[in-house]
Design a protein around this nucleic acid. Structure first.
Length: 193
DNA sequence: AAAACGGGGGC
DNA sequence: GCCCCAGTTTT
């Protein structure tokens, strides 16, 4: 599981596939199921040649499993030929890879600096009044200007953590929130955005 | 801009 | 029983 030449060589592949699978799915579920998938199909070549039905059976508990089975098998075939790209444009060519997943791969597979803006980061950035944006991409472009590069990972991951636990989409738990000044949504009723 | 994709965990 | 899950693609 750790270290090893083989594991190191396949790491970007695993980050890419695992991150595709993570869409709208809890981390623990994603981790458990992707571990099963990689045990059965350790390489892009193996997954590219897998039967769709078998992949769907493994992915069942993760949700969106038919769509995701298609994405990961097709992506594996492309990775076998192209490798895992190091540009956001290249990564977004893969099926099931949007801007957020592409940025995750840049950060977690290639060690590049980027801000993967998911729904939490988008929501918190707006609630806190750091930005006023409609789309996650607009939020990303604003944040990379507002936040010092060194703090990108800290801010991004802190927003995700706070968004999951406290600053929920519908019912933000303002009573347990340490942010007192600077929040535009402090005390707003749950129905409001 | 809205719908579709979805099983599972938490309360 | 409702809410939510580090989204992306299609309509």
């Amino acid at each position: 599981m750790l270290g090893g030449w083989q594991a190191r060589r396949e790491r970007p592949y695993r980050v890419l596939i695992g991150t595709i699978l993570s869409a709208r799915t809890r981390d623990e579920t994603t981790d458990r199921i992707s571990a099963l998938l990689f045990k059965r199909y350790p390489t892009p070549r193996a997954l590219a040649r897998a039967g769709r039905r078998e992949v769907e059976r493994i992915l069942k508990p993760i949700g969106f499993y038919r769509t995701k089975a298609k994405y990961v098998t097709e992506t594996a075939a492309m990775v076998e030929k192209l490798g895992v790209p190091r540009t956001i444009e290249g990564l977004m060519e893969f099926p099931g890879v949007g801007r957020k997943v592409a940025n995750c791969v840049l950060v977690y597979a290639h060690g590049q600096e980027a801000i993967p803006v998911d729904t939490h980061v988008h929501r918190l950035s707006n609630r806190l009044g750091w930005v006023r944006t409609k789309t996650p991409e607009q939020t990303e472009r604003a944040l990379v200007r507002l936040v010092p590069r060194r703090l990108w990972p800290l801010v991004n991951e802190a927003f995700v953590a706070h968004g999951k636990k406290t600053c929920r989409p519908r019912g933000p738990k303002c009573a347990e929130c340490p942010v007192e000044r600077g929040c535009r949504k402090r005390g707003v009723r749950p129905a409001a955005r």
